[in-house]
Each structure stands twice: as structure tokens, then as C-alpha cells.
Amino acid sequence: MMIKKIDKNQFKELFDKLKENYNIAAPVLIDKNKKTLVEYHYIDDFDKIDWDEQADSSPKNIIFPQNAPVGNDYKEKQYYDTEQDTLILGVRSCDIEAIKTLDQVFIEDEMYIDKNYKARRDKITLVGLSCPQRNKSCFCDTLGFNPVESNYAPLYIFKDGNEFWIKVKDKKFESVFENLPDGNQDKLEELIEKRINTFTESSFELDIPIPLPEKEMFEADIWEEMSEKCLGCGICTYYCPTCYCFNFIWEGKDGESTKYKNWDSCMFSTYSAHASGHNPRDSKEKRYRNRIMHKFSYHPLNYEGLGCVGCGRCIDRCPVNLDIREALKLTEKYLEEKGGAKSGKD
């Protein structure tokens, strides 16, 4: 592993050098009619990067775009939408964990590899960013993730004021960084230690078994109350960095049409509706239950890890203030009253 320590100007030079070989995306402050947002966008200018705020939307938008062409069915021609190597700068632990989840689902499943996703993902390098402080709604540490560091990104940045420490974990990037000043490992450890201490107090305490017991929680009588306010707008799933449900749509006529993979949402009533009219999830509590259970029971049963990374975006975005933390607390209470639950794997 290589550790480098550079100041803002040096980073700026590095950025301009990287630009020659990479498309670079990073969180930038944008002004959508004065409602400012931080989102991941492709940029040319280092000064545009917003290092301090958790981005409103996640880098999912780049790795798994809201709509992406799959190919032309008739011509049996697959389309790939990424050609150049891409760096995504400033990806925090929650979003790195979320990308790990998407990778699990789309490329690490021996039964099915999503060619379009893999082609795009193979060109993308994540440059992690140590989280400087807790945001108002996030709770990654409650779920057992480390906001300060993540091993899944081959490059990782610790920003300390105007200084940047860069951990180069993958040898293949060493040549890019070799001429930059070295950083002292002990000093970096100190910084990490100090930062971890700012997260010692958990945002909220939670004691639930993972995976949640599938049938028991499915049959629990808590879902109606929990979802009473839900409008079914799906914004939670769109801002969620791990939600990956999709649908195919076709644009263009007959032989010239393009098949697109578009985001879909399990919160929409039409999502699981059969053509016959039958709908297995015909009410909002069933749909809300499916979303929570997918993240904390079904996904952990099918893959390793959770389907939620505690980024808190669904909490910030929900128009009726539904809070996934409250759903989890209600689940905890329900299982506690039932006399201590076993996880779904037992």
C-alpha cells in the first residue's frame, strides 16, 4: 500500500493529469432553480468538487443509470454505453457498500452476469472518501459499517482541512501517484483514530437479528401502522443507493427499437400487477413490507450483507417523513415482545 499526502494545489494538478486518461465524476453543488443539491456529475474543474456534504443522490446514478440502453432485440445487438475509464471521486463508505451490493447482484452471481452493468463497472474506479462527520439522518455505523474507511475502493482519500491523504491500495495505480510526496502512516492512523472517535456515539441503537426472520416478520401486524402515511411515490427507492429493481421498456418501432433497462420501484402499485389484474402486493403496507423485508431479510438470505447501508437518503427525501429507523425500531420492539427472535438463517 502507498500513502501520499498532498495539498489542494497538488491535488488540482493531479486532477488535471488524471483528466487526460479518465472521465471524472464527483459530488458537485448544483443549483436547480435555487434549490441547491449535491450530486455526482462528470466534471472538468477540480474546484467544483464539494467534499463536505453528503451527496443528495448517490453514485448509483452513474454505475446503474436510471435508464440505460441494453440493445436492439431484433438485430440481436447489445449496446454498451461506457467506453472511457472513469473515476468516481469522493465516494463515502455508505455508497461504497451500496456499490458492493450492486456488484453482488449484477456481476458476482454465477447464475447471471449483467453484461451491460459489468462493461460499465469494469471501466469505473472508486475513489473513496473518509466521512468527516455524521449527517442528520445517516446511520451506517448502527448497521455495522465503518464511515471512516472502506476496503472496497482501490483508492481512498482522507481529507483533513486543505490537506488530502491518499491511500493507494491497488498496485496498478501506484505509477500515477509515485511522484507525489509520501504521507506518514502513523500520522494517518492518528487521524483515522481521531475521526473514528467522533463516531463512537451511535446515531441510534438497534438490536435486530439479520436476516430478519422471514415468515415471522412477514406475518407481523406492524406493517399497516408503519406504512399508513406512505404515498407510494417511490422517491425512497430512487434515492436509495442499493435499490436496483428495474424494468425493460422499448423505444422506437419494430426492428429499429431499442430495449432500455429503466429503474422501477417496488413501491409502485403496478410493479407486481399481473396482466390479468391480480396483484400479489395490492396494498401499500404489502409494498412497504416488501421494501423493508427485502433489505433486512430477503437480501441477506440471498447474498451476504444487508440491502440497506444506512445513508439516510430515504429519510431526508420522503415527502411524508417516513423514517426507516422508526420501522426498524418497531421491528425490534415487535420481536422483543415476541420473546427474542432468531434470525432468518437459524
Binding site: Y112, D114, P211, F218, F248, Y271, H274, Y298, H299
Partner: peptide, 24 residues
């Protein structure tokens, strides 16, 4: 069983019954 399906390989999400996907 019948379910609404898009992908056929347990990814698009809609045909699940609990953690099982009807398609796969």
C-alpha cells in the same frame, strides 16, 4: 406459479415471494 416478470433471472425484483424469486 405465475408472476409478473421482466428479467427471468431473479434480478428485476418483481416476482419475489419472500426471498424466493418465482423466475429462478
Amino acid at each position: 406459479l405465475e408472476m409478473r416478470m421482466s428479467c427471468g433471472v431473479g434480478k428485476c425484483g418483481r416476482c419475489n415471494i419472500g426471498h424466493y424469486y418465482v423466475c429462478k
